[in-house]
Design a protein around this nucleic acid. Sequence first.
DNA 1: ACCTGAACACCGTTCAAGT
DNA 2: ACCTGAACACCGTTCAAGT
Lengths: 202, 202
Amino acid sequence: MEPRPPEGLGSRDRILWAAASMLGDDPGAALSVRAVAARAEVSTGSLRHHFPTQRALLDAALVVVYDYLLPAGSLHDASIPARDRLIDNLRSLLVPTGEAATPQEAWLLIFERYVRGDPSDDARAEYVAIERELRRRIEHAHVVLQEEGAVPEGDNARRASFLMTVLIGISVGQALPAQESRLHSENDALHLAVDAVLGPQG
Amino acid sequence: MEPRPPEGLGSRDRILWAAASMLGDDPGAALSVRAVAARAEVSTGSLRHHFPTQRALLDAALVVVYDYLLPAGSLHDASIPARDRLIDNLRSLLVPTGEAATPQEAWLLIFERYVRGDPSDDARAEYVAIERELRRRIEHAHVVLQEEGAVPEGDNARRASFLMTVLIGISVGQALPAQESRLHSENDALHLAVDAVLGPQG
DNA sequence: ACCTGAACACCGTTCAAGT
DNA sequence: ACCTGAACACCGTTCAAGT
């Protein structure tokens, strides 16, 4: 039942294949050392040799998944300022997908499934996985921009966590009644948040 | 060196005291079963008896910290840095009030009244008024701090709008399922947001 | 350099056994 | 009911030892 790594791959590539395939099975998967090493059919020591921390492994796996396996937006277009690309990337996460056509529908669904009436452990886990995947996409955007030197080193998980909070705030704000156009204040919030994260110079 | 629980407390209260004191030492503390149990001087089994999961323990500890130990409105206390007072002020807006006892209940009510099924104009106006009042409180905090010269001149409405978005994000985050303690990331988000608004020097 | 697998120092949760 | 502490099934990281 367990999928096995393609033949002819070196250890490092088997590890990346294993991690990517686990994210493919479940984008919110936890990626523990032992689980990835087992699927890659290498030892935990070998995994640690190629990827000194879990962060390093996760970052490398996300590059494989998002840059190599999934279509890219403007993220890699070096002619656009890093700040704008990050904002584009975040904005793309705000677009409702799946069953929901509007922010109202989207959040009503989310609350129905994951908030109302003491949701089951399965339901909770499902939401946690969804959020983790979004977080990872944001982290990945940071890694890409960092590789260009366009974004300073720093705690990308922390940055992603903050930006996730701002995105939730904006998205819920879209669902709530408002007197005037939100377009300007949403844009403004995204810019302020991204500047807070990228540092003074932007 | 290790602080010891006050005498005369029952196990449950010793556990809460231990958890609260650890959060007092470091709001980002991890609160592991063993660490809390050790400071409380009870067994892990006893801790689990009173608080069946880490979530339950953390939630109970947060109630102690925020509702019981920190009821002070610090806005006018010039001995506290402006930045900290603004954060305190924002945090006070996050505490559920009225009919709702939890963020879950609060947001379910809000969505029921102001989002589901094309709300009436009256309902919409009601929400707009609530949000305006919250915005005003945030703006007011800016004004108070500006009068002291502790906050630079600037567009307070814009600042309040951004902080409102972040507060909504944090509050909805509190209602949604999460795997780990949100305490640290919430704190972090508040700090990042306030720094973004107050400018580089803080 | 690359790899192994044990060891270390942690987690949260469960549970038989005591009082 | 309350409490104990061992046991279980996990973590991520380190490291001596092999090739």
